[in-house]
Write a protein that binds this DNA or RNA. Structure first.
Lengths: 190, 190
DNA sequence: CTATTGACTAAATTAGTTTTTTGGTCAAAT
DNA sequence: ATTTGACCAAAAAACTAATTTAGTCAATAG
């Protein structure tokens, strides 16, 4: 049974990116961790960035599985939006690789990392967009610009979960759900 | 009529900060621009940062005057929130000093500048908070956590006006007003 | 006397140079 | 047909020297 070199490489790179970040991970290190010659990496991946892309791509798939598993058909659309988003942001704050990448972007501003995080954000927005389109088709919510709506939903969520904590004590899931309800359901108008 | 040295210094520093940013402005330069010996600056201000603070403090006052002038009593609360916020973000994108500081934060990450922009943001949130409290007292909108609500309102606005433009064509004032209405007034629920 | 100044200094920043590291290649080995 | 690691150019880091700058304070001016 020959070891699957490709998988070893991806596993090693994932581990190293999670531990040290993108920039501080060297291809020599990945090769050593994967018990593989450095050249072998380049038979599977064009370069470091493509290896990174593959890993992020898997990560996004994982996230979507997570979000989907949070959705329950018997609940309302609004409730499910909250549940899916909350699961996604929990994922972001609990997965070692995501934590490291967010940190690397903040501290060093590594370009490849910024691009990749932007990409992840866009994927999440696309995911939300699809859910919103389905809800509109089913007549569950009124028509709207789905691109802007999904964009704004995510931004609101990030504001509540991450930005808020810069100056205040973190909000509980229940508090966030309550706030979302005010904005999504009733609006501020009496 | 002795020239008011303090005013000359503040004027010179404002000009230089607007033109070159915080870091690239030297105290020698400010002194020369203000036709004043460098030591004189330090009889009025403890250090460079305190001089900066005074200028930002004036800026915030200007912004509040701007926002207030956008408010019209005969319009609805929601409409006025939109008008005031729009005026504030217009201010940010049109005032030379603000433009320069936002740019300096993005490009160089100057700490003193980041702190000052955070301070400006907090002042805006405080301003919104007062308006919301008044509206609640008048019974115009339902009760809510005013701290979170004002925070979220600003974040939504910045998302629509600034973040959106990273990947899309800018939204017009009318479009933004429409989106705000959906979220503040009606919610997404049918 | 008080208010103002600019030469002065310690500390920080920048510029220039050398050394080390790193992504990627490819001839040799398996 | 795969895999490898010595090798290379280019990028990054480390180091140093030279310059700049915030802030001080003894001398000066009014």
């Amino acid at each position: 049974m020959a070891p699957d070199r490709r998988k070893m490489i991806v596993a090693a790179a994932t581990k190293s990116f999670s531990l040290f970040g993108y920039k501080a991970t060297t291809m020599d290190q990945v090769a050593k961790l994967a018990n593989v010659g450095k050249g072998t990496i380049y038979t599977f991946f064009k370069n470091k960035e493509e290896l990174f892309e593959e890993i992020i791509s898997s990560l996004v798939k994982e996230m979507i599985v997570e979000a989907d598993s949070a959705i329950q058909l018997e609940l309302s659309f609004t409730e499910n939006v909250h549940r899916a988003l909350y699961r996604l942001l929990e994922f972001r704050s609990q997965h070692q690789l995501m934590i490291k990448l967010v940190q690397e972007e903040a501290e060093m501003g590594t370009l490849a990392v910024s691009e990749m995080l932007q990409h992840v954000e866009n994927e999440i927005i696309d995911y939300l967009k699809q859910k919103i389109e389905t809800a509109i088709a089913k007549g569950a919510i009124p028509e709207a610009n789905t691109e802007i709506t999904s964009f704004l939903l995510l931004k609101m969520y990030i504001a509540l979960v991450s930005d808020w904590e810069r100056n205040h004590a973190p909000l509980s899931s229940e508090q966030i759900a309550e706030i979302m309800k005010v904005f999504l359901l009733k609006g501020l108008q009496k």
